[in-house]
């Protein structure tokens, strides 16, 4: 079983639009969306939810006001500014700032702090017209996105194993931090979607450093390439120097947002030159992973 993760560094370069089209062309793949705090792939795949699992990321402190004596011992122990001293000296927890380190629980001399399992999201297993789909929703303002990414990937791999499917296709998240690292570990190919802008190139360099750091093979494609042919040439040269295959160059096309509004993968929305290029990109990618 092979795994491809679609990432970009910079947000909004077209990861989800391309992943949905790849999903429509990849026969028998398991699909996954690990952009757990702002997932969008379901808006193009229209999943029918089969299973839901509550995701508990960490425990958070809750202080019993009746037991709290207001001694204040916990206050300097918390490094996340999550403990608030009330007028009466009693302490309460700002759940949004609490990172679940549990130190207040340990230092409280009267046992006024309880640790409560905290629901931070939901994981879904769904079916779509293109195959099984694992996705998730992290609660608003939650942490532990990396752990949820790992859960989604585990579930997708498990389904692939059980059903004898050869490919897991994963829509990733922007950035280079915790959720992105969690989406990369152990994957066979990182597919980087970039654009010919200073930010696109800069962010691709950083994400490529990250894939190199974890020794993960990378390939890329240049989306909206015709916005700036000079920068496109720069990206291509950059890729050549590092032996990163460029699997496709896709034009800027106002029909793309139309396909998103219609809620269909682009290759099913249109059969124009952009769709042809996306098909070619997928063919090149399939060859790389074969």
């Amino acid at each position: 079983m092979k795994q491809i993760v679609v990432i970009s560094g910079k947000g909004g370069t077209g990861k989800t639009v391309l992943t949905a089209s790849f999903a429509a062309m990849a026969e028998g793949a398991v699909l996954a969306d690990v952009d757990v705090d702002a997932s969008n792939l379901h808006l193009l795949l229209h999943p029918e939810i089969r299973e839901q699992h509550i995701f508990r990321g960490s425990r958070k402190a809750v202080i019993d006001a009746e037991k709290c004596t207001g001694c204040g011992l916990c206050l300097p122990a918390c490094r996340f500014d999550a403990l608030i001293e009330g007028r009466d000296g009693k302490v309460s927890v700002d759940a949004m700032s609490c990172e679940g380190c549990e130190i207040c629980y340990h230092v409280c001399p009267v046992g006024a702090v309880a640790l409560e399992p905290h629901v931070s999201g939901t994981l879904y297993v769904s079916s779509t017209a293109y195959g099984p789909f694992v996705h998730a929703r992290l609660g608003v303002a939650e942490s532990n996105s990396g752990k949820l990414v790992t859960e989604v990937r585990k579930k997708a791999a498990q389904i692939a194993e059980q059903e004898g499917r050869g490919l897991v296709l994963v829509d990733g998240s922007p950035g280079i931090g915790c959720p992105v690292i969690a989406s990369l570990t152990g994957t066979d190919l990182a597919f980087i979607v970039t654009e010919p802008t200073p930010s696109g190139l800069h962010d691709m360099e950083r994400i490529f450093e990250l894939t190199s750091h974890f020794k993960i093979r990378a390939a890329c494609c240049i989306n909206k390439f015709d916005l700036n042919p000079e920068n496109t040439a720069r990206v291509e040269a950059w890729c050549r120097e590092r032996s990163v295959p460029v699997a496709g160059t896709i034009p800027f096309d106002p029909a793309v947002p139309e396909s998103v509004v219609r809620g269909v993968p682009f290759v099913e929305h249109s059969s124009n030159a952009t769709a042809d290029e996306i098909r070619k990109t997928w063919a090149a990618l399939s060859e790389l992973i074969a």
Partner: peptide
Amino acid sequence: SPPGTSCPVIESLK
């Protein structure tokens, strides 16, 4: 701010 809605965004908005 960074994109998303999880801890980096919360830290930025605070």
